[in-house]
Amino acid sequence: MPRKTPIDLVRAIVPRGIPHAGALGCELVSVEKGRAVVRLPWREEFVGNPETRAPSGGVITTLIDTAAGMAAMAALDEMVPIATLDLRIEYLKPAAEGRTIEAAAECHKVTRTIAFVRAWAYQDGRDDPVATASGTFMLDSSDAVLRPPPKKRP
C-alpha cells in the first residue's frame, strides 16, 4: 500500500481527528497542495454578542486556525508534526448570524523549519471576507510525538 501523503492525512483527520473542530461542526470542503478550505455551518452557540447576534471572534479564530494548519500540512512533501507559532487575525466586518462561514487558507512559503500561511474567512465568497489572517507554523515541532522514535546508537 502506498504511504499516506500529508494531503491524505488532512482528508483523514478533518474533522474527527481534531476533536474541537469536530465539536464545532467544521467540515473539509477541499484540500490540495498547500491549500485547504474548511466550512463551519451555523449553530446558535456561536453567538458572541447576544444583541447583534454576530458570531464570536473566537468561532472565526478556530475556523481559521484549523484551515491554516491544514494548508500548512498539505504543503509538506512528507508528514512531520506541526504547531502554530503565531496567528494574526483582522476582523474586517461582523459575520452575519445564521449563515455558514468558510475559511480558505494558502501556504505560500515553506522553509526547513517554518510554514507561512494566509487565510480568508467569508460568507459571500473570498472577495468579500469577514476576516483575513496570516500565521506561521513550526515544522517538526519539539512536541512531536507523531515522529518515530530516534534510532538507538549501539
Binding site: 481534531i18 476533536p19 473566537g58 468561532v59 479564530t61 478556530t62 486556525d65 484549523t66 502554530t84 507523531l146
Partner: peptide
C-alpha cells in the same frame, strides 16, 4: 472539556479554543 482538544495524540488544546479564551 474533552471537546477542547485539537491534537489527541499529544494531547493538546486546539489553538482556536486557546485563542477564543485569550480574546474573550
Amino acid at each position: 472539556d474533552p471537546t477542547h482538544i485539537g491534537n489527541p495524540v499529544l494531547p493538546a488544546l486546539h489553538g482556536g479554543v486557546v485563542g477564543a479564551a485569550l480574546e474573550t
